[in-house]
Each structure stands twice: as structure tokens, then as C-alpha cells.
């Protein structure tokens, strides 16, 4: 994954509460067993007046010329609620978004963002809702700079490390293999019932 250090872009506003993952990528757009090819279905229900024919809705933010090329998305409260589908983040990332600034995120969506190199920032999005303004996100410094002002933001250590290093979390965890093995063998001793049942197979 590409490390996330700084990002300078305009921001596209979608400041509504409870934008759920069904809205970000409707189920019917998840046609194949793949993480790719999802960006055309991003926000399909809002973005097109005719979804099947892909007729753009000129009112929708992503179709407005002033927001073309935006790599930052602004959201309201509880952004990414609903289904756990990671397709929502895959679609956003493939479309070009690398950061979402929202009043709040659903926890699964937030985790999915971090695992896919998309930075979720919890802040009031309204100050950044200025068409044409370039917004600079500096993850190592944990601040956003725009129009001569600076806003600090919080992010947990683990997420920051994953994003700034562009780490593959599986590779990182596998380095702890011996500790995982040790935990497991101790657990087999102390909770045999949790393990023995796994071989019980067919219905009794």
C-alpha cells in the first residue's frame, strides 16, 4: 500500500448524517467476486438519474465540475454506517478518494479505511466546505491546513503507523508468530473445551 504522508486536494462535500455503505456502494453494484471495478458504482443511487444507463445526476456533488478531481470527501455524522462491506472503501479508493473528513464514522468502516490506505479524520467538516479551496492534510503532524488556518486532529497510534508506513498488517502480525503460537498452546491447556469441539463435525 502507498504510504500516506501528506495530501493536498480540494474537498467534495457530502455532509449528510448516516451515509450508509448501501448508499456508498449499492448491493447491486457488487457484481463480481473482486475488489476491483467498483468505482463506477460509487454512490450509484444518488449519482445517476438512471442507474442502468449511467445517466449522471447533474445535482450530485461528484458530477459537479467544481469538485472534479477531489481526493478528500467531507461527510456528516456516523459516516459509513450499515453493512460491513469493504466494497464501500474499495470503491471510494478506486474513484480517487484518499481521505474522508467527517463528524463521525462507523467503526467497521473506519477500520476498512485504514486497511486500504484511506485516512478517516473525525472533525467538523464544515470549515473545509469551500469550493475551490486547496486543503492540505499532514498525517505525521496530525493537522489540516487550509486558508491560512490549522486544525489538529486525533488518530490512534496503530492507525497512524499503518497509514504512514503503508504497512501490510498481515505481514506485520506474522512477525509475532511465536507469541501467537505460545498463546495458543497455553489456551489449549487452559480451555480444552474450546478446542476439542472443533473435531465434532456432523450433527449428533
Amino acid at each position: 500500500m502507498e504510504p500516506f504522508l501528506t495530501l493536498t486536494s480540494i474537498a467534495a462535500p457530502l455532509i449528510r448524517d448516516n451515509v450508509d455503505t448501501d448508499a456508498i456502494i449499492p448491493s447491486r453494484e457488487m457484481k463480481s467476486v473482486s475488489k476491483r471495478g467498483l468505482s463506477a458504482g460509487l454512490f450509484a443511487g444518488w449519482r445517476y438519474t438512471d442507474v442502468d444507463a449511467r445517466v449522471p445526476n447533474p445535482e450530485f456533488v461528484l458530477n459537479r465540475p467544481e469538485y472534479a478531481g477531489a481526493r478528500i470527501l467531507l461527510g456528516g455524522a456516523n459516516f459509513g454506517s450499515g453493512s460491513s462491506r469493504e466494497h464501500a472503501v474499495w470503491a471510494l479508493a478506486e474513484y480517487g478518494f484518499r481521505a474522508v473528513i467527517a463528524a463521525g464514522f462507523s467503526p467497521i468502516f473506519r477500520g476498512n479505511c485504514i486497511r486500504n490506505g484511506v485516512l478517516p479524520i473525525v472533525l467538523d467538516p464544515r470549515p473545509f466546505n469551500e469550493p475551490g479551496h486547496q486543503i492540505e492534510i499532514d498525517l505525521p503532524a496530525q493537522e489540516i491546513r487550509a486558508a491560512g488556518q490549522t486544525w489538529p486532529f486525533d488518530i490512534d497510534e496503530e492507525a497512524k503507523l499503518m497509514l504512514t508506513e503503508g504497512l501490510d498488517p498481515i505481514a506485520l502480525t506474522l512477525l509475532d508468530g511465536p507469541m501467537i503460537d505460545a498463546h495458543e498452546s497455553a489456551d489449549r491447556q487452559s480451555r480444552p473445551w474450546a478446542w476439542s469441539v472443533l473435531s465434532q463435525g456432523e450433527p449428533a
Binding site: K35, S84, E86, G111, N112
Partner: peptide, 10 residues
């Protein structure tokens, strides 16, 4: 608890 697909891989 519910997770994403990448976490499931993990």
C-alpha cells in the same frame, strides 16, 4: 463482532 474483508483475511 463484525469486520471487513481485509480483516477477515488477517
Amino acid at each position: 463482532w463484525g469486520i471487513g474483508s481485509s480483516e477477515a483475511e488477517h
